[in-house]
């Protein structure tokens, strides 16, 4: 049976169809779940796609944290289900406290829209499980609030525990320690600013995102089913 992926849609989310299309092409069964839902309806994995959830009012991701669906996402994450936040989804995970740190306005005060080289730093999480640590992926970034920040103690911990998942080789936004993505303690919740779903077809310039998303779906499929909200 194919892996069921809940693709969460907040008001203002705009990458849900891209994510669902790639999941579908990779043989998974994506389902777009509106933010008012309180259940993930038997999903094996959750993806929070990019966009501008709730208009990014107050701070990017700040209000999405209180959407009804987030309680189910939190419960799923606690139960070990793979949860991936891409771009605005990463901001939502940080604001929700499911990932450490915060994403601030880019250091250069420029909206960045480019394909940038990103190095895989670990394979001990659900996103990079199929990638080779040290390998470099060409991934698109497309954001204004992508400057990753955390306090010194958190950074020390992230490094010591190998939780920096991806690093920029050419830091486009001023992120602390070139961080492009991080994971939680158990490696099942991952957030990244680049858009792997936009790099899944050579026709679109890069297919380097495939190793990430296919690895994520494999990790979700290998996991014994757990009943969650």
């Amino acid at each position: 049976m194919s892996v069921r992926v809940a693709v969460v849609q907040f008001p203002g989310t705009n990458c849900e169809l891209d994510v669902a299309t790639v999941c579908d092409r990779l043989g998974a069964a994506p389902e777009i779940v509106f933010h008012r839902e309180r259940s993930l309806a038997g999903a094996d994995a959750v993806i929070l796609p990019g966009g501008f959830a709730h208009g990014d009012y107050l701070r990017a991701g700040a209000i999405a944290r209180f959407s009804p669906v987030m309680e189910a996402v939190r419960a799923a994450a606690r139960a070990g289900m793979p949860v991936l936040g891409i771009c605005n989804g990463f901001q939502v995970l940080c604001e929700s406290g499911m990932l450490p740190g915060a994403l601030m306005r880019n250091a250069g005060l420029r909206f960045v829209c480019a394909t940038v080289p990103v190095r895989v730093e670990t394979a001990a999480d659900v996103l990079t499980a199929a990638a080779v640590p040290g390998s470099v992926l060409q991934l698109p970034v497309n954001h204004f609030e992508g400057c990753y920040t955390c306090d010194d103690a958190t950074l020390t911990r992230l490094r010591a525990e190998g939780r920096v998942v991806l690093r920029y080789l050419e830091n486009p936004n001023g992120s602390l320690d070139d961080i492009a993505g991080v994971c939680n303690e158990s490696g099942n919740v991952v957030g990244l600013m680049p858009h792997p779903e936009r790099a899944c077809d050579a026709l679109l310039g890069s297919s380097d995102g495939l190793v990430l998303l296919s690895g994520f779906l494999t990790a979700a499929g290998c996991r014994p089913t757990v009943a969650t909200g």
Binding site: L58, R59, A62, I63, F66, C94, E95, G101, A102, M104, T149, C150, D151
Partner: peptide, 8 residues
């Protein structure tokens, strides 16, 4: 809880 993000 909402109005400020204590991280930043």
């Amino acid at each position: 809880t909402l109005l400020a993000n204590p991280v930043i």
